[in-house]
């Protein structure tokens, strides 16, 4: 059984009088521990697919089975629970709470899973330290650089021990050096902790960190191929 199984996913939006279909039948299998990149021009349906994968949005038709559970059967509160326990999100614009410390931002998902204050604090600290932000915990997002903010967002994504991390253009607002650092962090989380990662990007350079690349065009997947990893390639070269 795959971790993620999409079968014939269609999604349409109401536009004025008519309906606009943006996904025309997406099929996808993702195994636990994979690192996939979804690529394509804007409007190709990659972000919509990611929103459905992340249980932020529901398909108009088709089946989505996540970890053996048919997501179509779930109501809003159950989807919220899935997002809370199984999926971490990293966005292009970071989406941190303003005027709220890095520590409080990372603690937030645990508020909604009912974790006790003491454990919340301890886990948030531990994860932020792992992200190299041990000395920035009390800073508000406005006092942090873009790279640091994205690390806080990643910390928030993994703090509840979600097995899946979804990243929508996570390097879109970062310079290339910081992008590399963030992508290496994703790679490390994937390899060392076995976190399944789904990434949306339009930059081939960013996608090259993944283990599998899917190309989207006009609401369909046009190609789906394994990728020799960038890190792996470099190791090969050195050897």
């Amino acid at each position: 059984m795959s971790l993620i199984e999409l079968t014939g996913i269609r999604k349409s939006f109401r536009m004025g009088d008519g309906e606009l279909e943006v996904l025309h039948g997406i099929d996808m299998r993702v195994e636990s521990g994979e690192f996939i990149a979804m690529m394509g021009p804007s409007g190709s349906g990659k972000s919509t697919t990611m929103n459905i994968l992340g249980c932020l949005d529901t398909p108009t038709s088709g089946r989505y089975i996540l970890d053996g559970q048919d997501v179509g059967d779930l109501d809003g509160d159950e989807l919220a629970m899935i997002r809370n326990k199984m999926i971490g999100f990293v966005f292009q614009g970071f989406n941190l709470l303003q005027r709220t410390s890095a520590l409080a931002n990372v603690e937030m998902p645990m508020l909604y899973s009912g974790t006790r204050a003491k454990e919340r604090r301890a886990r948030a600290k531990e994860v932020l330290e792992r992200m190299g932000l041990g000395d920035r915990m009390s800073h508000d997002p406005s006092q942090l650089s873009g790279g640091q903010q994205q690390r806080v967002a990643i910390a928030r994504g993994i703090v509840n021990r979600a097995p899946i991390l979804m990243a929508d253009e996570p390097t879109g607002n970062l310079d290339s050096k910081t992008s590399d650092e963030i992508m290496k962090l994703f790679q490390e989380l994937n390899e060392k902790e076995g976190i399944t990662i789904a990434l949306v990007t339009h930059e081939p350079d960013v996608a090259s960190y993944s283990g599998r690349i899917m190309h989207f065009k006009d609401g369909l997947i046009t190609s789906d191929e394994p990728n020799g990893r960038k890190g792996a390639q470099q190791r090969d070269l050195i050897l």
């Binding site: 992340g54 932020l56 809003g76 509160d77 919220a80 629970m81 997002r83 809370n84 326990k85 999100f89 989406n95 941190l96 709470l97 937030m108 998902p109 909604y112 899973s113 928030r156 509840n160």
Partner: peptide
Amino acid sequence: IRMAVGAK
């Protein structure tokens, strides 16, 4: 944001 991380 709160809903994305699991607020009902």
